[in-house]
Design a protein around this nucleic acid. Structure first.
Lengths: 142, 142
DNA sequence: GTCAGTGCAAACTTTTTGCAACTAC
DNA sequence: GTAGTTGCAAAAAGTTTGCACTGAC
């Protein structure tokens, strides 16, 4: 799919781009650029510059192979192919992000009537307290 | 309300804090720290430091008088009192943000069943092309 | 051979932090 | 008087940019 995207858009097939794509698709959840870059250097033993990672992520976003999120301070990303739509639960206490599957909600949102706007995609972020932090709070109170 | 919040939490009532709150509530839509700070200096003629604006926003977030959003590069904020829940339409072409009112959708989201998570609030960001940019694209094609 | 892509470092932007001076209580 | 706040400037964190070198086509 990426190869096709590169071909159609007249971009070159470089080893860096494929290495970045592979690393991203080895990650299950969310990641930021820093983490991805570190993983490539340390685990994959593939030296790339930060700039190339930023460039490539931009292509992957455009190719719809990666989705960008903006919780916390730095941008977070996740692979989008083979991932199924889902919503995000973000703990305001510890910052942990988990996924929520709810097909009814998905339907409701994507079929929501909109004047003068063509929806392409959406993000639903639900903030609150995760069970772990709730338990921790309870313990503190006692 | 803010006075009460400050009292309960043992914070001091400073002129800076009230000036920032007033300025924020004079803004109808979204704003970032830079814009808010500039407004205070230029329009309100009230000199505050950037650091104080950041500090105060933190209090206002905690007091639920302001909501934080993260579209684009810098954090965006908006007042939350007297604002009615709404969703956000973000144009991926020009970056313009507009509001969408949809009570059914609100109900669906806030009553959505969630395991091991206590929702406090949520943000729904809908990305797509606004009518202006859609028209512009059409014109270009011709 | 050509030009898109890469690496590196410097620049830039946004946010946080340390500390002296100030002031609400 | 004291401790919470402020202002300033420096530092940190995240991202973008300029430019010489490299390698895909």
């Amino acid at each position: 799919m990426f190869t096709e995207y590169l071909r159609v858009n007249g971009h070159r097939k470089t080893s860096e781009r494929y290495a970045i794509l592979d690393t991203i698709y080895s990650i299950k959840g969310h990641f930021d650029i820093e983490t991805l870059h570190d993983m490539m250097i340390n685990e994959e033993k593939f030296r790339v510059s930060r700039a190339t990672v930023y460039n490539t992520i931009e292509l992957l976003l455009d190719a719809k192979l990666v989705i960008k999120h903006q919780f916390g301070n730095s941008s977070q990303y996740e692979r989008s192919y083979n991932m199924g739509t889902h919503h995000h639960l973000i703990c305001t206490e510890c910052g942990k992000v988990s996924e929520l599957q709810n097909n009814d909600l998905q339907q409701a949102i994507s079929h929501s009537p909109m004047k003068r706007f063509q929806m392409s995609h959406y993000s639903l972020y639900i903030y609150g307290i995760c069970s772990k932090c709730a338990a921790q709070r309870k313990r503190k109170k006692q």
